[in-house]
Structure formats: structure tokens, C-alpha cells
């Protein structure tokens, strides 16, 4: 179980690294937000779950923390992305589809 926990922590660290790389390399704010959010969500899930496996006493608390991250993190990112879109930050030129264009439904 402890080895499984360490494997989970390693996966989480890898996703954190990918998130940092994505924030550095992605072309515009939306892609960066997506990279950062995915990294924090999946990376934090893995690391916290790994800590829960390494020390089984923490497992219920770890699951609770995961639930709260699942509730808050995507909402925060979606609100940030919406605010960025509303003040008129343009997506990068490679973006082909913009479903929000012209509509008020965001």
C-alpha cells in the first residue's frame, strides 16, 4: 500500500510538472488556464490520494480534501476564463472554433 502511495505521489508530481510546462509553453490565456487547472486538479488528486495511501489514518481526510478540490478548482478556472473572454482577450490565431462568439449565453 505504501508503494502504491508513492507511485500516486510520483504521478501527481509528474502532472504538476506538465502543468508548469503548459503554463510556460501554451500560446494564450485559455490554453494556459486549461493546462494549469488540469495539472492542479489531477496532480493534487494524485498527491493527496498517495498521502492517504501511505498513511491510512489520513485516507478519509484525503478523500474529503479531494472532494473539496473537485468542487472549487474547476469553478474558479471557469470563472477566470469567462472573465478573460468578457473583457475581450483574443484567443490565439490557431483557434478555429469559438462557440461563444456573438452569443450572450456565457
Amino acid at each position: 500500500m505504501i508503494i502504491l502511495g508513492y507511485i500516486f505521489i510520483g504521478i501527481g508530481a509528474f502532472f504538476y510538472f506538465l502543468g508548469g510546462l503548459g503554463i510556460l509553453r501554451m500560446p494564450d490565456v485559455y490554453n494556459r488556464l486549461q493546462a494549469g487547472t488540469k495539472a492542479t486538479t489531477l496532480g493534487s488528486f494524485s498527491v493527496i490520494l498517495g498521502v492517504g495511501f501511505v498513511n491510512m489514518d489520513y485516507l478519509p481526510k484525503a478523500l474529503l480534501i479531494i472532494a473539496f478540490i473537485a468542487l472549487t478548482n474547476p469553478v474558479g478556472s471557469s470563472v477566470l476564463a469567462r472573465a478573460a473572454y468578457l473583457i475581450g482577450i483574443k484567443p490565439t490565431a490557431k483557434t478555429k472554433v469559438d462557440e461563444c462568439k456573438g452569443g450572450d449565453e456565457i
Binding site: L71, T72, V75, S78, V79, R82, L86, D104, I106
Partner: peptide, 15 residues
């Protein structure tokens, strides 16, 4: 002058 985000409103009700 714009309705706040639907996702935000729903999740505030939960959170």
C-alpha cells in the same frame, strides 16, 4: 448588467 456565471451561481449554493 450581465447575469453572473451559471456555474458560479450553482456552485456557490453548494459551497
Amino acid at each position: 448588467g450581465r447575469e453572473p456565471n451559471f456555474i458560479l451561481r450553482v456552485s456557490v449554493g453548494i459551497l
